[in-house]
Design a protein around this nucleic acid. Structure first.
Lengths: 205, 205
DNA sequence: GCCGGGGCGTACAGACCGGTCTGCCTCGGA
DNA sequence: TCCGAGGCAGACCGGTCTGTACGCCCCGGC
């Protein structure tokens, strides 16, 4: 612990830790970049520390193992991607809760077309490590947090059975992400259309 | 080449090559089992050859590299899983093309509950290697074959815009597989309900 | 002025990776 | 009877992996 506390843990997004240059911040920023685009097993510790300009001893002073860093990365990804890039942006774009729900797929549409589109790290890690591995279980937990955001919006919209709604909605989100990875950049539009039907069938009628 | 030709390549499913005991068959059967459940990078050549009771020299006489074996595995997976386990079984269960389409998710429901449920190898390999890697590109190709089966059923059912229909349908398939990997064994039911709505909107009306 | 924590660089250990190569054995056809 | 193709076993190669250890240096507090 040095100067930086009194504000809790330091899991700030890469853009937001511009002013900071502590080793732990460089490690986290680099892990976000490398793990997001190339997966866990695709990035070794040696490349990670050399990319972040940190010695190996320093790395292992802050993180007891690579898996511990991956856990921190997943937490960071939840903040940067799930919360800020997707949920907050969707809430910004829509005026009503229903519009905000549908705006998720507009955000997806923009995201799919970015050249640094790297799919969903939680799905990647889950499939890479398997649901039995601690990192897979952690990924499942973060995926359920995404469902929690959807469920909250469904409740604000007054939809029926919001938990079931969120599970179905999440199927559309994950399926469209895989399709986008295959190259179908219009997958967001297809998913959005099915999402509209899902909303209709969860309105009180 | 020995006794076994005059019937083309030997990519038979594990169950169907009961009588055969050639090294290449043992290699393929073992690779199917190990790659399906633990991914590509999770299985090394040494384990693979010792599990199939084959020497390393023999392995490399039949396959020039590990990637070549993975390509053969994907082809085998297409036969065993896509064609026989999913498409043929769905066609068996339904009487009309529409019923056969919806039966896909009944088959999924049974498959999700198996204790050896191992998700979709094509999605796994695609996310593990990335869409730019040769194995990722091959996986994309096999995924498009799955869409081809769906599109054929849609055409038999006389649905509108069968190619777009198949793309939307495939989103539901892939999304439900990921959800099942997270532990939601009812994902097939949720996807099936959305699939019903999709059919309704692709009928001539 | 000095002392120590934390940073850096790097060498190293031990395991495993894909892939090559050599030797031995067996079996089937001429 | 002999010969060679093909299978088995395993040593070995260079490289990469995670994780440990050691030495040097800088900078800040006393």
């Amino acid at each position: 612990m040095t100067v930086d506390d009194a504000a809790g843990p330091t899991l700030l997004p890469p853009t937001a830790m511009a002013g900071r240059d502590e080793p732990v911040d460089r490690i986290l920023a680099t892990s976000y970049e490398l793990f997001s685009s190339r997966g866990i097993r695709g990035v070794g510790i040696n490349e990670l520390i050399s990319s972040s300009g940190v010695s190996k001893a320093t790395f292992y002073r802050h993180f007891p193992s690579k898996d511990a860093l991956v856990l921190a990365f997943l937490e960071l990804r939840d903040q940067v991607w799930t919360v800020e890039l997707i949920v907050a942006e969707a809430r910004r774009r829509g005026n009503t809760p229903e519009e905000q729900l549908l705006a998720v797929f507009d955000v997806f549409g923009d995201w799919f077309q970015r050249d640094d589109f790297e799919a969903c790290s939680f799905i990647n890690v889950l499939l890479e490590m398997g649901p039995g591995h601690p990192l897979g279980k952690a990924s499942i937990d973060y995926l359920s947090r995404i469902r929690g955001h959807i469920q909250a919006l469904a409740e604000e919209a007054g939809l029926d059975r919001p938990e079931e709604f969120a599970r179905s909605w999440h199927i559309l989100m994950k399926g469209s992400i895989i399709s986008a990875t295959e190259g179908d950049t219009l997958a967001s539009k297809r998913a959005q259309q099915m999402a509209r039907w899902l909303i209709e069938h969860h309105r009180g009628l």
